[in-house]
Design a binder for these strands. Sequence first.
DNA 1: TTCTATT
Length: 492
Amino acid sequence: MATLTNGQVDAAVHGGAASTNGLVNGISHTHSPASCATIPMKDHDAIKLFIGQIPRNLDEKDLRPLFEEFGKIYELTVLKDRFTGMHKGCAFLTYCARESALKAQNALHEQKTLPGMNRPIQVKPADSESRGEDRKLFVGMLNKQQCEDDVRRLFESFGSIEECTILRGPDGNSKGCAFVKYSTHAEAQAAISALHGSQTMPGASSSLVVKFADTDKERTIRRMQQMAGQMGIFNPMALQFGAYGAYAQVQQQAALMASVGQGGYLSPMAAFAAAQMQHMATINGLPGAPMTPTSGGSTPPGITAPTVTSIQSPISVNGFTGLPPPQANGQAPAEAMFTNGIHPYPVLQEVVFREDSEKGGLGVAQRSCFGVQGSCFLSSLSEGIELPQTLVSCGVVLLCVSGPEGCNLFIYHLPQEFGDGELMQMFLPFGNVISSKVFVDRATNQSKCFGFVSFDNPGSAQAAIQSMNGFQIGMKRLKVQLKRPKDANRPY
DNA sequence: TTCTATT
């Protein structure tokens, strides 16, 4: 119906060169409903839009042209991390006119994919625009063949569905679960009553699960629980100091930073990591005060690098994990130690893990290990990734995973105080980090200020390079580039 | 079997 957007009206009225944010002359204007040219005004019923799937190298000025097409923009803000300033890949957008928002949503939501993104752009009312968030359901135990439409059909009779998303892995395969958002809590409740446990999908191991989706907080708690559980399995420090010793240390760092004040020696990233840890500890009801005195650094006392010897045969495989059971005294079995003669770290000859065809996928890959020092992080691994090297560290053998070529980054000029955890934190925003490793001088236990991060796909690696190469921390700028393939060291 | 993000 409308042939001119507000923006076009403005351009026509003001010759197209009007300032976009007004206040040019400091003159007070009587606001005309049809125009927000000089002093931006928005409709009283304007809609704040959430914009998702934005490449992290695009800022407000890059995005404006894309959205101005649908009307005059009242406000456009790219969301950034409050500590690091890191682009979060999404934004809020408010048009002066409600109509513009609707048009933009119609034209853009899921309609095109911005360069470098794997999923289409999201343009929809921000969460803040609709109160009552308890209308989103988690649906589990679906058949992996079921698509969005199948799920919709199953749920549509209970109310109006605003969103329906199948959760998929990077390869596009369904994870067998979905989110369904109704427009009201009552509709969602009705669906739960009618559908939860009502049937068992072919191929599912139990009956359909229909429940309210986790809140952010619940999700964080679950992750922490998983992490704590796995620390017990992988990390001797967890046995020694308790699973939360590491948090206490981070909290000490945070407290130290507070006492040093702004400009303290902690980098913004470390502060960020500390704040996150503190937050997680808080929601778990853990004490906020330091618990375990340490020798002052972030390195727990009493750790020495393992003796390097060599091995003749590949490590015997526990199931298919390649992990000898951790020893109670924190020492790795001697036969697990070996070296490639180049790295300061003992590196296992390549072990290729086979997929467990019964269960499908790589069981070990689901482990996530909180590294205290010299240990290695593992998080979700996609199927089909070949695992790799094993590190002996902290007296325990840990897996160090590499992704396929193009997925592994070399990072240099890390802050001295960065460990595996901070490194992972820094790169998590760009994708699935399957391992992160800061290299440490064996003699001094000091970081060598470089490390490696592996993603499970090249796109994430590229995105990380885009955003993080040259990223300034303190006086230094990060160098982030693809790790050189090291064929020379591969005997097979 | 809990997601790519929501100042």
